[in-house]
């Protein structure tokens, strides 16, 4: 029973071409560890340098998006003094890296507030339609701009993903309840 349950899960992933899966609370050390394993796997696959760097870059942006923005989180109510900041709060998400034919795909999913969906949707729609030149121009503009309210990074993550991807990004939202939606983003390299 136990073996067949886990094997089912594994074969579901396997038939979708998934090589790596992480589902759970994502922390920076998780990013480092999975990232190292990913680099090794890509080296074993003999991926060319450009592919290796692009898959890795997209993986980092996707992981950091979960760490910073997933709406599903657990918080330690009263952290002891000197407790590392990053451990006070952990955010939940799922990330897969796999292959579709010759392409690598990096997918990430996490909860978002439904109130944020229209803004995210508009931003991603805009990025998705852009060609490489337009993306380059927008990236440069954003690099100089003040980060958007609520942003914890440079506001460049989605653009970096789109620039590194070899096909237009794909994304989707699934309403969960009145407050939350599940957000999924796929990048192909």
């Amino acid at each position: 029973m136990l073996a067949s349950q886990l094997m089912d899960l594994r074969s579901t992933l396997h038939t979708q071409g998934v090589i790596f899966t992480y589902s759970g609370y994502v922390t920076e050390p998780v990013l480092s560890g999975v990232g190292e394993a990913l680099k090794q796997k890509l080296a074993i696959d003999d991926a060319d340098t450009k592919t290796l760097r692009s898959v890795f870059a997209i993986f980092v942006e996707q992981m950091q998006n979960i760490i910073r923005y997933s709406a599903e989180k657990t918080e330690t109510p009263l952290p002891p003094t000197g407790y590392p900041k990053a451990l006070r709060e952990m955010r939940y998400g799922i990330l897969t890296i796999g292959k579709e034919g010759e392409d690598y795909v990096v997918c990430a999913g996490n909860l978002v507030q439904r109130a944020d969906v229209p803004r995210l949707h508009a931003r991603l729609d805009r990025i998705k339609e852009m060609n490489k030149e337009e993306l380059k121009a927008l990236y440069k503009e954003q690099l100089r701009a003040e980060p958007e309210k609520g942003s914890k990074g440079a506001g460049l993550g989605f653009m970096e993903i789109a620039r590194r991807a070899s096909k237009p990004i794909e994304f989707d939202f699934n309403d969960l309840d009145d407050d939350y939606a599940f957000f999924a983003l796929k990048a192909t390299i």
């Binding site: 760097r53 890795f56 870059a57 980092v60 942006e61 950091q64 690099l143 100089r144 990074g153 440079a154 460049l156 993550g157 653009m159 970096e160």
Partner: peptide, 13 residues
């Protein structure tokens, strides 16, 4: 630089 993420790009700028 071999690789930098998007928030580092801002720092380099």
């Amino acid at each position: 630089l071999i690789y930098l993420n998007s928030s580092s790009a801002k720092a380099i700028m």
